[in-house]
């Protein structure tokens, strides 16, 4: 029985495979990076007006955004992706006459479209929470100083809210890296797509492990980058924290970057 199990270990790690197919994995890595970077930046731009509308007192503004976030956070991303990708095919005549068919014909654009809308929903909730976390006294003090609404938003609320939002936004970036693997299911040749193709050609299981190592490298790199960013941007708070924090809290380090918020 032992030789068979040893054979299984050899089956798990196969180095020759990497020589023959490694370059394809790197091509896929590039597509993954493109999808993630474009979707996350567009989602961030979209999240600001959404979070503003969500906090608006006008129900005509707040309710549609509530429904939007409920849909995108409450259903699987794969279902949303199918809805965009296959649904666009059904709407082809209408999209063609609107001059949009070139966009929805392409799996790459469909993925970016679906991922952007999805991450915008999550990011808008992060931003909303971060703005609510800024102490009320800050706003009152700024008003008492006679600052304009725009100046308050830009110089008082924004810098403090962004510091609060930094870590959850990093988690969201990691979530999108992980979620981007779904693009492979709608035929996009990203890292996961290339991996599946190579597996279909070679039936060699190791390729999944090599892909896992690449994904792990990306998510760990983002995690480290975010730790560095957070230290950099909050260094003005370090002395205050050291003076005021109780001993028990200075010993406990902040929670590790948390990819648990990954959502599909």
């Amino acid at each position: 029985m032992l030789p068979y199990l040893l054979g299984w270990v050899g089956f798990v790690f196969n180095v020759d495979l990497l020589n023959a197919w490694g370059w394809r994995l790197l091509l896929g890595l590039r597509v993954t990076a493109e999808v993630v970077l474009i979707a996350c930046s567009l989602g961030f731009l979209l999240a600001w007006p959404l979070s503003l509308a969500r906090r608006s007192r006008n129900p005509l503004l707040a309710w549609p955004v509530l429904a939007y976030t409920a849909y995108f956070r409450g259903t699987p991303l794969l279902c949303q992706l199918y809805l965009v990708y296959y649904g666009a095919g059904e709407l082809r005549p209408a999209l063609a006459s609107a001059g949009l068919w070139w966009f929805f014909r392409d799996a790459f654009y469909c993925c970016i479209f679906a991922f952007t809308l999805n991450t915008a929903a999550y990011q808008s909730e992060i931003l909303r929470g971060a703005v609510l976390a800024v102490p009320k006294g800050q706003l009152e003090a700024a008003r008492a100083l006679g600052l304009s609404r725009l100046a308050i938003a830009r110089h008082v609320i924004w810098p403090q809210a962004m510091l609060v939002a930094l870590r959850p936004l990093g988690n969201e970036l990691i979530s999108i890296v992980k979620a981007s693997a779904l693009a492979a299911i709608v035929t996009l040749m990203d890292l996961m797509g290339e991996t599946r193709l190579i597996f279909a050609r070679t039936f060699d299981f190791s390729i999944y492990l090599y892909a896992a190592i690449l994904y792990l490298a990306i998510t760990q790199a983002i995690s480290q980058l975010w730790n560095w960013l957070e230290r950099l941007l909050s260094r003005h708070l370090i002395i205050a924290r050291a003076v005021t924090a109780p001993v028990a809290q200075t010993r406990a380090r902040g929670p590790a970057l948390d990819p648990v918020s990954a959502e599909f």
């Binding site: 299984w8 693997a181 492979a184």
Partner: peptide
Amino acid sequence: FFRGIPDLLSLFIVYFGLQA
């Protein structure tokens, strides 16, 4: 490992690994 890779990839690894 399992928090750092896509859930889809984890499923494939477990599924095909188990089958093997």
